[in-house]
Each structure stands twice: as structure tokens, then as C-alpha cells.
């Protein structure tokens, strides 16, 4: 079962880490991230008089007003693309239900001890949350983009709804950024180089790790290392 010693050495040397995200996935993620940051900052400028100094940072009020909806379309389209790319990985399963029961443990200790796959229930939940709010933000934003074609009452309700959705996404964004940077060291590299350490992968996503561990004891040849395997 185990490969000869010299082949194992080659495998170990060539695979210090585990590939987590392909180049395409990372580009998609950063596109969503940057468009979201722009939308959040311009949203704060548009919605909060005390934050209107952000207009100047973002090129002036007219620029913000004309770019915000266009960037918004880009954001939502990219989030929907994420669904296409990750739909399979984001399906909920029985392990996710158990993960949900252990949410308190996860918050306290950062670990559930469950045999988690590529994404845990929290990540899946955040994905669906971002997808649904993203689509709703675009739909509620359309009448604000073209106010002359929307009925007055519709426009007002949509402006309020758009604001509520905005706050919900900002809350999600704060938690997402905190967890992927400060809370769990070794996570951000999955979105930069696309690689994570074996320790990180084995600890946070054991089942996914076993399937993709390049040094799996019964693996006899190096796995393909192209950018989009």
C-alpha cells in the first residue's frame, strides 16, 4: 500500500501544503471582496450623512452615485457565479446539523471535533446568507437606480429594505473577515496562495483533508499541481 521510500520522499518534498482554492476561485472571491468593500463604503457615504466624507475618498458624490449600482451588478453576478462553482460543496448534510448543535463549543473553542468536509456548516451558512442578501440587494437596488420608473411607494419601501439588507451584510462581513484573519491563523493563505498547511487542513476540515492530502499514506504518485486542477 505505502509507496517505496524514495517515492514518498519526493511526494513529501513536493507537497508541504494542501491546495485549497484554485486560481479561478481566488479571483472570484477577491472580485466579490473588492466590489463588496467598494459597495459598503459607498453605501455608508450614501446612507449616513456623518460618513459623507467617504464621497471624497471615492471620487466624489456623482462618481459614487453612478458607480455604486454598476459595481453592485458585478458583485451580485459574481456571488451567483460562486453558487455555480461551489453549489456541490455548499449542500447541507447531517454533519452540518450536528455542527449547528455544537455552535456554542465552536465559538468558545474554535473546534467541534466533527468530521467536517470542505466547508463547515458556518461557512455554508455564510455562503447562503451572502447569496440571498446579495440577490435581494440587487433587486431592491434597481428601483433606486432608476427612480423614475418605480412607483413612489415602492421606491420608499425599497430604500428602507436596501438599508436593512446593507446592515445585515455588514454584520456578516465583519464576522467573516475577523474569522479568516485574526481568529484562525493560516486561513488567509488559502485566499492568497491558495494553499493551507496540513495542520490547518487536518484540524479544520479533516474529511476534506483526507481526500486531498497529497501525502496520504496510500498515495503513490504526486498529485497534479497545475493552477486549475
Amino acid at each position: 500500500m505505502t509507496a517505496p521510500a524514495e517515492e514518498r520522499t519526493v511526494i513529501v518534498e513536493e507537497h508541504p501544503t494542501v491546495r485549497r482554492y484554485s486560481l479561478g476561485e481566488r479571483i472570484l472571491h477577491w472580485f466579490v471582496a473588492l466590489t463588496f468593500i467598494y459597495l459598503m463604503l459607498s453605501g455608508f457615504a450614501l446612507g449616513y450623512p456623518r460618513m459623507s466624507w467617504l464621497y471624497n475618498v471615492l471620487g466624489g458624490g456623482q462618481t459614487v452615485r453612478s458607480l455604486h449600482p454598476i459595481v453592485g451588478v458585478g458583485f451580485t453576478v459574481a456571488v451567483v457565479l460562486m453558487l455555480v462553482v461551489w453549489a456541490r460543496d455548499m449542500r447541507l448534510s447531517s454533519v452540518d446539523r450536528e455542527w449547528g448543535r455544537r455552535l456554542g463549543t465552536y465559538v468558545r473553542s474554535g473546534h467541534t471535533g466533527l468530521d467536517v468536509g470542505r466547508f463547515n456548516a458556518g461557512q455554508k451558512g455564510y455562503f447562503w446568507y451572502a447569496l440571498i442578501t446579495g440577490v435581494l440587494l440587487l433587486l431592491t437596488g434597481l428601483p433606486l437606480w432608476f427612480p423614475e420608473i418605480a412607483a413612489l411607494g415602492v421606491l420608499r419601501v425599497m430604500r428602507v429594505t436596501h438599508h436593512v439588507l446593507f446592515l445585515l451584510t455588514v454584520a456578516g462581513f465583519i464576522i467573516h473577515v475577523y474569522m479568516s484573519t485574526a481568529m484562525f491563523p493560516g486561513t488567509i493563505s488559502s485566499m492568497t496562495s491558495g494553499e493551507v498547511s496540513r495542520a490547518w487542513a487536518a484540524h479544520h476540515h479533516p474529511r476534506w483533508f483526507r481526500e486531498h492530502d497529497p501525502r496520504r499514506p496510500d498515495r503513490t504518485e504526486p498529485v497534479y499541481r497545475g493552477d486549475n486542477p
Binding site: R19, S22, L23, R88, E211
Partner: peptide, 9 residues
């Protein structure tokens, strides 16, 4: 959901 494990890329 993914008994075979989706290709992580």
C-alpha cells in the same frame, strides 16, 4: 453532501 469530496482545486 460530497462523499467523494469535491475537487478543491
Amino acid at each position: 453532501a460530497t462523499p467523494e469530496g469535491g475537487e478543491p482545486g
